[in-house]
Write a protein that binds this DNA or RNA. Structure first.
Lengths: 257, 257
DNA sequence: AGAGTCCTTGTACGGTGTACGAGTCACGTT
DNA sequence: AACGTGACTCGTACACCGTACAAGGACTCT
């Protein structure tokens, strides 16, 4: 095991996935407390989902598991490691089989993007957390591999793969981040997303310097919000944006052909 | 002023920009310590840039300013508010005049995207922080307004504006996030980005389960990294991705015309 | 001189991550 | 049966965090 203080000096220690494993936690439930890295990670995901990133503490996590905080350190070097494990576990929620069954590359990209986005929104702690790590756990790699396969099916030349992957999935990450944080804020305020949106927009309107800056879009924002729920609007905007991305990829494919 | 404990209940308090201002901090340097919200924010940006998000504490910030921690609370409700102010200040680094001078909408989008990305990379604490707030400070709004203007110049119909803005700038946010965090990790390990990349890739290669997953791209990754610095590669990938996005927008414009 | 306002500080509380060393228990060997 | 020897758990302690609260100082105005 590696002391927390010794981390960050060795790049191989930048990720729990690059450490030399000693297999200690491989056997499950061996100890008197029935502890186990999988159980620890599962419990932390529960806390993260229900109470948010800020509320996850080693003591709380330990209490939930019926142990002392220091017991956790047998299975894990730092609190950060737990989150890194949790991130990868959640990447596993993306159902790659559904993607395979989705038709041509256009539909596959749509399906992958949609699932990725839903996952980020379902776990609002994901985007801030995932952004911190290299995301090279087995599940994240599997997703990356599938993304790469899908993009490759477009027929684009190899050296265009990374940027094309970025164009689509960095967009999805950014989009999901906004949605997730907005949802989190609304939940913290104890309001529905629509109410929160409405209240924020109202308060916003009272600030004269802002009104003129976004005036051109104001009617549009109002009109949209008065007809549909913000989640519906976001769904539609997301699809539109994917249209743009896919159209752009098609152009590149044609240019190359 | 608003007690920290009372926050998060009122959506108008979800942002420092939606609070009723009492103008207390408007006069600058009035107090015996010559303190001032601008000075506080400037000092925190310095710490954030030099030592990172995790190292910013009220006590440290106060010490840097030659004051006690509690003095800061005269100008600010919570530590979070300071970061929200810092985020907006840094949005102000994006030079909108340069964007105006950049030619047609294609070049303007490129210029805006490039500046946004550079800003995120220059301040690695920005992406995790900016993701948390509504980003409705004056500078963020100015940037948003410029983005909107630029996209509008494409001639797309109004209801396509939000998704088109998302497609481009959520991508930039995601891309910048990855770059910034990678750079931060490398700096923490005390290595150049190229060395860090090489070491990570090497360690990565020792994990058999990962090799096969990304095998198709392996040659590409190696070849690219052996010819150019990762920062050069990222620059190019970023440009390629913008090509895709702009091509996609062009298609949409044509379809609509 | 007194009052009032603006600003700063000292102290304290309840939290945090985690280092360290001392237990406790099950098991393999002798 | 006794004895290590590991695998695990826990209690204590440290340094640090954000910030509530009340007291204090300095300056201005009357």
């Amino acid at each position: 095991m590696v002391k927390a203080a010794d981390r960050a000096k060795n790049p191989a220690r930048s990720s729990v996935w690059l450490e030399n494993k000693d297999g200690r936690a491989a056997r499950s439930g061996g100890g008197p407390a029935g502890l186990d890295r999988d159980r620890i990670v599962a419990a932390s995901i529960r806390i993260l989902d229900e109470e948010g990133l800020a509320k996850l503490s080693m003591r709380k996590l330990a209490t939930d598991l019926g142990v002392t905080a220091m017991s956790l350190y047998w299975y894990v070097d730092t609190k950060d490691d737990i989150i890194e494990y949790a991130v990868d576990t959640v990447y596993g929620e993306i159902d790659l089989a559904v993607v395979d069954a989705a038709g041509d590359w256009r539909q596959q990209i749509r399906e992958l993007a949609l699932q990725y986005r839903r996952m980020l929104v379902r776990h609002p702690w994901m985007s801030p957390s995932a952004g911190q790590y290299l995301n090279i756990g087995p599940h994240a790699i599997a997703v990356g591999s599938k993304i790469q396969e899908t993009i490759r099916a477009t027929g684009l030349p190899l050296d265009r793969l990374p940027s094309t992957m970025s164009a689509v999935f960095q967009f999805v990450y950014g989009y999901g981040t906004i949605e997730a944080q907005f949802g989190r804020r609304a939940a913290e305020a104890g309001m529905s997303q629509d109410d929160f949106y409405g209240e924020a927009l109202k308060a916003f309107r009272d600030e004269p310097q802002f009104v003129e800056a976004l005036e051109p879009m104001a009617e549009l924002l109002d009109e949209r919000a008065s007809h549909d729920s913000v989640t519906v609007i976001w769904d539609r905007d997301f699809e539109y944006a994917l249209d743009i991305l896919i159209a752009g990829i098609e152009v590149m494919v044609q240019r190359h052909a």
